[in-house]
Amino acid sequence: MELVLKGFGEVVKTVTFRVRRYDPEKKEMPKYMEYKVPVQRGMTVLDGVLYIKEHLDPSLAARYSCRMGICGSCAMIINGKERLACQTQILELNKDLIKVDPLGNYDTVKDLVPDLNKLFKNHESVKPYIVREEAEPYGEYIQLPEEREKYALFTECIMCGACLSACPTMATDDLYLGPQALAQAYRYIADSRDAGFNERLNLLDSKHGVWRCHFAGACSEVCPKGVDPALAIQLLRGVLSKNVFIKYKQNPAKLGPERASIKEVL
């Protein structure tokens, strides 16, 4: 028996893509170009962009990798809101005109490709790793499931950069760390294994650190993974403002038994 998928491959309607084109090497101002794209059921905005690249204009540049919302390469401003292009259904947008922009508040490499250097640099500057006093651990760090729940939400970040584009503070302040970096800073400070609060304090407790956030909630609103960076920033601020009166003490988790001894048992 032949399996027939109803409506599969059928062109439902034609939408217009209005794409921002900009090539820094050509010394031209950014401009918008329109493309007519036939839409099938289940087609995402990324599929539409790739259709344009394959059939209409091969010079269009876009960054993508996994096409399933894991890699975080294809974040774009679609109809005025930051979304992952691979997870936005064209038919769900329910518009005949789809406006596609590269992420704001970044340099543009070409067309829809933003230069995410700022994001990665800020992320690196908050020491996104567990800081310990001992030089080399000899065993596992012991952590309870309840202790993991304190930061588990913020580990979901895929570094797509949508939050920095949506942030209204980022729009005017170049040196601001951004929601992504601050959320990751809280993720490591709240980690029971970490002992690096004082090392990160100078950077976070500065003019362009946590106090620059105004809780507009736009970062949480656009986050494709529901990480809620705004919550992390407010909790981090709670830690810092309590630190003024009572010094915040981290109790780094104890090390488990030595690996060598475990080997002997096994």
């Binding site: 900009y22 820094p24 101002m29 704001g104 508040n105 970044y106 340099d107 543009t108 209204p168 729009a171």
Partner: peptide, 10 residues
């Protein structure tokens, strides 16, 4: 390179 900044108007 024109930075794609949103600016205070945003």
């Amino acid at each position: 390179a024109i930075e794609n900044k949103k600016g205070w108007i945003s």
